[in-house]
Amino acid sequence: MSDLRLVIFDVDGTLVDSQAEIMAAMTLAFQAEGLALPDRATVLSIVGLSLAEAFRVLCPDVDEAQRVRLVEAYKASFMQLRSDNREMGPLFPGAMDALDVLRAQDHTLLAVATGKSRRGLDKVLERHGLTGVFHSEQVADHHPSKPNPSMILTALSETGVPPQKAVMLGDTTYDMDMARAAGIKKIGVTWGYHAADALLPDAMIEDFAALAGAVDQLIGS
């Protein structure tokens, strides 16, 4: 197993540009509770956190009962938007090609570590033809919120890959801090929801065409 390597992907802001649907669902959730919606940059800054943690950041002054209602309103709004057959967030340019390159390598395993729910991730994978592509899929239902390293540690356990042969790809400081806590390498992307200069990764890529080379550089080819 020691010759295997693992590439772990964040979803929102890294693989999929989901900001339009996130903003729409947040707008409906805040309206349902009669609260003012924070600005776009503030909302997008919490992408990657579990919903409960996200609303603690966005609404520090509301009580726990209202935060629970906000979480449920967001989930309901997200499902309603999808049932209205709205276009779901597209893959970022080059994402599918980069996945195809890596999945064609016998020694490379792929995983997901996302703040999405199991149901939410399944919808995204189905929408983009990615069902079955990832060897390990870690979701918010079963773990503490990022940056707790639980998702990465579980992916390593499930795949049998040692930390020194694993790398995390993400767009937020939560992804980078999670990888750091798990003791694995980290690749940041410039197109996501956190400022690139805040990420402090081991490598930074500006497009998906650079991913395979960055992976080779950090964990060996």
Rank of each mutant, 00 (worst) to 15 (best):
A203H: 11
F208T: 07
E87M: 14
V215I: 10
P147S: 12
Y193M: 09
D122H: 14
A25C: 06
H142A: 15
A76H: 13
R82M: 11
I187C: 00
L37E: 12
V11Q: 02
L125Q: 11
D97K: 08
D84Q: 14
G132D: 06
M79C: 09
S50F: 00
I46C: 07
A54L: 10
L169H: 01
T159M: 02
A24T: 10
A166S: 07
V47Q: 10
F92A: 03
T114M: 06
V133C: 13
S145E: 10
A36C: 09
A29F: 00
V71H: 02
L153Y: 00
P144C: 07
A25Q: 09
Q105N: 11
A29I: 03
Q19H: 14
M168C: 03
P163V: 01
R5Y: 07
Q31P: 06
L37S: 05
W191L: 04
G120K: 05
V11S: 04
A111S: 09
D202Q: 01
R103I: 08
T172W: 00
L35G: 01
A24G: 08
G89M: 09
P149L: 10
L35D: 02
D97Q: 15
V71N: 07
Q31I: 08
M178D: 00
K186F: 09
L102R: 04
L169V: 15
D100N: 14
Q217M: 13
R56N: 12
K116H: 02
F9N: 05
T108N: 05
F30C: 09
I187K: 02
I46V: 15
A155K: 04
P162F: 01
M79Q: 14
F78N: 15
I8Q: 03
A41G: 07
V68R: 12
G170M: 02
T131P: 03
Q80M: 11
A111C: 02
M168Q: 05
V57R: 15
